[in-house]
Design a protein around this nucleic acid. Structure first.
Lengths: 173, 173
DNA sequence: GTCGTTGCAAAAGATTTGCAGTCAG
DNA sequence: CTGACTGCAAATCTTTTGCAACGAC
């Protein structure tokens, strides 16, 4: 049932958080793993840096954007790179499901923002709350689990605008 | 990019929660929508009731179980029914991603359990924590959003067994 | 040069859909 | 009876992979 057999050995979720921004950190981090810094990888990360924290893309979207800006990257490589960067802790995989995974820049290790997702228009608001992190840590400890990341709490909701439309029989966007 | 064009018109996220348990409620709820109660639908829901609250299945698993207990249901119908029941608010779609959606009984509105997911072996532990719900409500209020469900907090972690293997160069299961 | 990476095309997995036969109401 | 379901098989979509060419170091 798993669609994700081991492949890239980059899956040490414990990797030390890279100082984002510079290519230098990425290069040496890759080298430590015996891997290489290719233009594709660099551009991919740059794309997310440009996008800014808290905004996410699907594999397909990332591919489109790269091609849009003239880069030569195959979709397969996008998938491979997304996985690699996530494994390195540079990107974070969101679990909003609804047909396709999404990725965003893994911000400073100590920011932990959660999402309020409007199921109607897709608008996303973020918020932070330390109680959530505390709850996560306490649960992990209680079950003997070792937390890899602070989980992201995704709340499905209606934003003010959509909530207003809700009663009136308007078609979803 | 969406893999989910409208089909079953059962997608009113605000639908009144059906009183679970009896076939009666299901039947009339379906009738209100001009739909029918078929053995497949009934058995599907029964399966989840049997399973109990807080336990989830993928479409494939649900199909296996039904067939296992001698039911004659096609996988396509399992998918269709899962969607229908979710749309009616009887089942809840979890967003654990990692290859495949999972569904569980949409239990009493006020139970809210979260997940500790082992990224290595897939083991899932559940826990509850009211602080999380409080945080969710407070955030929704602050942003003017209208919460549809209490979000589920999915924590990516390593279970005790996998954490032990982690250092030694063992291949993932 | 060597060995990790890439692109491509094919494969695999998950979910949806067209259609004709079936059955709930 | 009639229109809503179902099963089946084919179609889609998303993600992964085998392999030969390529390029970072």
């Amino acid at each position: 049932m798993s669609r994700r057999p081991p492949d890239i050995s980059a899956d040490s979720p414990e990797g030390p958080a890279l100082s984002e921004g510079s290519t230098r950190g990425l290069r040496s981090s890759l080298h430590d793993r015996g891997q290489r810094l290719t233009p594709q990888r660099e551009r991919m990360l740059a794309l997310f840096h440009h996008l800014g924290e808290g905004r996410h893309l699907s594999a397909e979207e990332a591919h489109q954007r790269l091609r849009g800006q003239g880069e030569q990257v195959s979709l397969a490589t996008v998938y491979r790179t997304l996985r690699l960067l996530s494994g390195m802790g540079l990107l974070k995989e969101l679990e909003l499901a609804e047909g396709g995974r999404r990725f965003e820049l893994a911000g400073g290790e100590h920011r932990h923002h959660h999402h309020l997702v409007c199921v109607r228009c897709g608008r996303i608001e973020e918020f932070e709350n330390s109680a959530v992190l505390a709850a996560a840590e306490s649960a992990a400890t209680r079950h003997g689990f070792h937390l890899l990341e602070q989980g992201v709490l995704n709340l499905r909701a209606l934003c003010p605008a959509c909530a207003a439309l809700q009663g009136s029989s308007l078609a979803p966007s």
